[in-house]
Design a protein around this nucleic acid. Structure first.
Length: 484
RNA sequence: GGGGGUGUAGCUCAGAGGCAGAGCAGUAGACUUUUAAUCUAUUGGCCGAGGGUUCGAAUCCCUCCACCCUCACCA
């Protein structure tokens, strides 16, 4: 794609020749500094109705150029928007010829006066201009922009320069994340940082990435979750904590999975699952209202209106309705037959399979799916009335899991038993089962208060609130194979 | 991993056995109110890579690479 040795194609050569001409005239093509008086958006709004000529110094990237002879119009773009600028022979004299050394893609600084054309376009009439950064490669075409998805992801900067909608998606992503922070900070949550490099991984079912620390001469794992560390902080006495973390899972890549992805996890002492459910609904609704003009968006061929209350449904009810089976009454054999899998995969896997195929696609409107089987939830607290189930929900919107929460298991004896059970599955060949974390269990033995925990996949939430169907459209630099 | 699709100029795309094409951008020229400016002329190609079939391959066949969709996998 980008060769080590720059191609000496015609377009690049022509730009290098212009570069030489700029240098020969004693001008630095890449100067250090340019003092501007306004951003382009500020200049636009500074142009008052009183019609007084306002002197401005502006800077930006040249993205369009229309040469009309003794008059030229061009368009500058900066982080705030675009503004038309004009060059007139009568204002510039001999310097008008220097326009020949400009290319679309160059950054330039100009000084001049704002005016309004006969068509009403606010325009900066240039009296002086200078290069700020010469561009040596042509930008994508002005009308269609950059379309090829491969090139858009590999050279995201070109995508951002050319496609305003893409820019807006990532601006919205940032607003969602900062909105989350603000919302939690206002409610007394404390943002913390926990290790990315972990001696033992856990908190989720996934294959980890392994790396090696030379000085310690030991393998370390990139975290698949920060759950077990955040709970240690609850044990340590921080009652409300959250972390916005990059997690890493060594699994396939598709439109809802990227090997590194963003997650927010939060833990609140003395909160139960109901509290967390309320919090989740309030948070998601607040973010939706902040980002969506009317609090609704189209998703999976339906209109999701976040102002409406979220539905609640238990795993048992859902499987009765859509898979026609009572998960609490059915034998392993019956579940296996319904799921079309061997009994040996285990009850948890069977239920999971039935949910994926029959239930999840149905959950288009925001729905809390509650009361999960204990086999699928090794870190969640059992229900008091039914030990086969745990106090847990997953939030589904558009048929996709967006959040996961439970009353945290704080019984160290039960926790050890479940981790040991997981480790057995690991020995039996389940590459995604986590190992026993004795250090974590020791921490639990000191005592963890009753705690509610929540994890939200940030990328998937951003997809939902920006109407994107691929996770690559909400991650600036999604993982790609290397080109040789 | 299975199935389907795509890959041609800097970008967006036509071309489906017989001379490699268009629009945009680029270059040269004309033009002082353009907004995808317009008009004239024009440069630009390892047709993803490698092999094969054929008198002749961008086009047909095989292998490989990358990307997209889909199924499987993935709480």
């Amino acid at each position: 794609m980008t060769p080590e040795e720059p191609s000496d194609d015609q377009l690049r050569r022509q730009r290098l020749e212009k570069l030489d001409r700029i240098r020969e005239s004693g001008t630095n093509p890449w100067p250090t500094r340019f003092e501007r008086t306004h951003t382009l958006a500020e200049a636009r709004s500074a142009f008052g109705e009183d019609g007084d000529p306002l002197h401005v110094r502006l800077a930006g990237r040249l993205v369009a150029f229309r040469d009309l002879g003794k008059l030229s119009f061009a368009q500058l773009q900066d982080g705030t928007g675009k503004l038309q600028i004009s060059f007139q022979l009568k204002d510039l004299g001999e310097r008008y010829e220097d326009l020949r050394n400009l290319d679309i893609g160059d950054f330039i600084g100009i000084s001049g006066y704002l005016w309004r054309t006969s068509r009403g376009e606010i325009t900066a009439g240039v009296h002086d201009f200078q290069p700020l950064a010469k561009s040596l490669r042509p930008l994508p075409e002005k009308w269609h922009g950059l379309v090829d998805p491969e090139k858009r992801y590999r050279q995201r900067y070109l995508d951002l320069i050319t496609n305003d909608e893409v820019r807006r998606v990532f601006e919205t992503r940032t607003r969602i994340i900062s909105g989350m922070r603000r919302w939690l900070d206002e409610r007394g949550f404390m943002e913390v940082e926990t290790p990315v490099l972990q001696p033992l991984y856990g908190g989720a079912a996934a294959r980890p990435f392994v790396t090696h620390h030379h000085a310690l001469d030991r393998d370390l794992f990139l975290r698949i979750s920060d759950e077990l560390y955040l709970k240690r902080l609850i044990i340590g006495g921080f009652d409300k904590v959250y972390e916005i973390s990059k997690d890493f899972r060594n699994e396939g890549i598709d439109s809802t999975h990227n090997p590194e992805f963003s997650m927010i996890e939060l833990y609140q002492a003395y909160a139960d699952l109901g509290d967390v459910m309320t919090l989740t609904e309030d948070l998601v609704r607040a973010l939706a209202l902040e980002v969506l003009p009317d609090g609704s968006i189209e998703c999976a061929e339906a209109v999701i209106d976040f102002r409406q209350p979220f539905a609640r449904l238990s795993v048992r009810e859902a499987l009765q309705r859509w898979a026609g089976i009572d998960v609490l009454e059915a034998t392993d054999d019956e579940l296996a037959a319904r799921a079309n899998l061997p009994v040996a995969v285990g009850r948890g896997k069977l239920v999971d399979e039935l949910l994926s195929n029959h239930v999840e696609p149905q959950l288009v409107q925001p729905t809390f799916l509650t009361d999960w089987p204990v086999e699928l939830s090794p870190l969640a607290k059992r229900r008091i009335d039914e030990a086969r189930l745990v106090e847990r929900f997953e939030l589904f919107v558009g048929g996709v899991e967006r959040a996961n929460a439970f009353s945290e298991l704080n019984d160290p004896i039960d926790q050890r038993a479940r981790m040991v059970d997981l480790a057995k599955r690991r020995v039996a060949g389940d590459v995604e089962a986590a190992p026993v974390d004795e250090d974590f269990i020791e921490a639990l033995e000191y005592g963890m208060p009753p705690t509610g925990g929540l994890g939200i996949g940030i990328d998937r939430l951003v997809m939902l609130l920006t109407g994107q169907t691929s996770i690559r459209e909400v991650i600036l630099f999604p993982q790609m194979r290397t080109l040789q």
